[in-house]
Design a protein around this nucleic acid. Structure first.
Lengths: 164, 164
DNA sequence: CGTCTTATTGATAATGGTTTTCGCTATAGA
DNA sequence: TCTATAGCGAAAACCATTATCAATAAGACG
């Protein structure tokens, strides 16, 4: 199995274990190897405060800051793998780059409000949105992978004259 | 005013005129010039059947096919301008490129169901989603620009074994 | 524990969509 | 019509992401 065969992973685990253990199990289950790099990359994503999202470059910067030298090929490959494993979510916030966030199953599905000017991202929860998307997918015979609801606007700080 | 000053356009028109006329009015109102290129680029987007989305390259291809030679710098600039004017909507369907669609005010806000495998895009309407996003934005003092709800999954044709 | 297979890493080069540059052209106001 | 300058387009630059490939190391097996 090559490292590019990771796109069809469908099974999930019932998890109450630590994320490190979860990673180990998932990788094993799919025939992937447990490497220091993958573990450290996931750890970076987990340490991020809720509501913050990291780009591939952000991840590398944080790793570099803590003394880890991991090439960006590895960062990108690991991020994709973790997304395929269902551990991370890839966000398309209409910016030029992609962002990643840890997929906490305990945390309700949340969505994003983005300021088109300064790029600030605010999260909000709404379970109805997710079920709407889910229904829509299933009604058309699709298997659901992800729902992303992104609202773009101008935050109070960037908004034109009126209020600020 | 330079052509890169187009990002702060906030006013809209009440329109019952033909799109060509609308374009003319909007451009005039903002101090932009009415050029053949801009008119033809908009026309391409308008001629597309509903539910189809074009990338910048698609637009150029269609223009080339009908004998129009317009440089891609111009295509990109015009697309951005038309988005800023509120005539087009820029879609982030999590693909590598961006897509554009004509913003028909008569047509209800619609959203997209994307097959992660083959990239097929299906549209669906749901007014509640839009009002949810609108409320969320306004409650936080944001002025609303756009709401995009994108559902990703595997279409029946690409889905794993089970049904096909 | 050592050996072997091969998945993985990482430096580098390549890719590909988008943006910038800059001299030329053409719009729109005087 | 004339003039100022917004806009065009070919080519080069940009920049996030992906591919290449030789070296490395995880994990299986004896």
């Amino acid at each position: 199995m090559t490292q590019s065969d990771s796109s069809k992973i469908s099974e999930r685990l019932y998890l109450e274990d630590s994320p490190a253990e979860v990673l180990r199990m998932l990788l094993n289950q799919e025939g992937f190897r447990i490497t220091e790099q993958r573990q450290k990359i996931l750890q970076v994503l987990r340490e991020v405060p809720e509501g913050e999202h990291l780009s591939a470059e952000d991840v590398q910067d944080k790793l570099t800051a803590s003394g880890e030298k991991i090439g960006f090929s590895t960062i990108y490959r690991a991020l994709h793998l973790l997304v395929d494993l269902g551990i991370l979510r890839e966000l398309n916030l209409s910016e030029e780059r992609k962002f990643y966030e840890f997929c906490n199953p305990l945390m309700g599905a949340h969505h994003h409000l983005v300021c088109a000017e300064c790029g600030t991202v605010t999260e909000f929860e709404d379970s109805t949105i997710f079920s709407l998307g889910s229904n829509e997918a299933l009604n058309r015979g699709f298997s659901l992978l992800d729902c992303q609801f992104t609202v773009r606007g101008l935050c109070p700080h960037c908004a034109p004259s009126l209020s600020v």
